[in-house]
């Protein structure tokens, strides 16, 4: 269990890992996540389950190197075992045949929206996906997303590939061109999700976002993950991670995500990756 079976770089900073976890693979649904630790003295971090392979009894996780834990994980190789994995956690994505759905993924969020797109397609939806990144060389999962969707639109901030601009602008154009959208799923950096919600709100298109607050236990025990939705406090790990984006207080999410900025920097600086010895 917990053995790394495959590891590949999707871009310089984003890694895809296939990890042996038969019981999780057997039951996970789109939208769910795991919590892992790389070592006994490590931190518990949540990561979305991007895919599963039931025959191999394995799950795929996709992560960007952003802090010490992800750096440690990136330093691990095929054959090594991850210290602990708990899951599947969170409520699965509500999947039904909505009609026309649009899946928007930004940056590493594409890894999160990918299983959702796949499940929507399997449920009979027409799926248009819009994915974006700062630049072409860090755009991930293009092929997989193309396969999971009926139509794929790409945007890059610097115009190095696809539409020159943000994914929100692509969505805006889609709406303006008269496409009748039944539901939008958006996952990415907080500002991106906020802007997507601003785009869909006037058109009353229900928009589901997947939130990534800081978590500890991820079982509803601590409240580290609290977010405000429709003026009420929710625990993202058990009540979410997906919520109606039009109700989410993105400002609160963004400030709470910055809570340990100083410590994260310190940990990263001190990081010599003696984390899985």
């Amino acid at each position: 269990m917990n053995e790394i079976l495959d590891k590949s770089y999707l871009s310089e900073q984003v890694i895809s890992m296939v990890v042996s976890a038969p019981e999780i693979a057997a039951r996970r649904k789109a939208g769910q996540f795991i919590v892992l630790m790389t070592a006994e003295n490590g931190e518990r971090i949540p990561l979305t389950i991007a895919d599963e392979n039931k025959e191999r009894g394995a799950i795929t996780i996709i992560f960007q190197i952003v802090g010490k834990t992800t750096a440690c994980l990136a330093g691990m190789n095929v054959g090594e075992r991850i210290y602990s994995i708990l899951g599947p956690l969170g409520s699965p994505t509500e999947i039904e045949n909505f009609g026309l759905t649009v899946c928007v993924g930004g940056g590493v969020g594409i890894g999160v929206v990918y299983p959702i797109a796949k499940a929507l397609k399997e449920a009979g939806n027409r799926v248009i996906s819009i994915i974006g990144a700062r630049s072409k060389n860090i755009l991930i999962l293009e092929e997989e997303m193309r396969e999971a969707s009926d139509e794929l639109l790409v945007a890059t901030d610097d115009g190095s590939y696809g539409f020159h601009g943000f994914v929100s602008e692509v969505l805006q154009k889609l709406i303006d061109s008269g496409t009748r959208i039944d539901r939008v799923f958006a996952v990415g950096p907080v500002p991106m999700m906020r802007v997507i919600c601003d785009v869909t709100r006037p058109h009353k298109i229900k928009t589901i976002v997947s939130l990534n607050p800081i978590m500890v236990d991820a079982t509803g025990m601590c409240g580290a993950c609290r977010v405000a939705v429709g003026g009420k406090t929710k625990f993202a790990c058990v009540d979410g991670p997906e919520f109606d984006g039009h109700e989410v207080d993105f400002r609160l999410l963004a400030t709470r995500l910055r809570m340990y900025e100083a410590e994260e920097k310190k940990a990263m600086e001190a990081h010599r990756c003696h984390c899985h010895g």
Partner: peptide, 10 residues
């Protein structure tokens, strides 16, 4: 014991 242990607290 941070940073010997990775989890921070205020």
């Amino acid at each position: 014991l941070f940073p010997e242990f990775d989890t921070p607290v205020a």
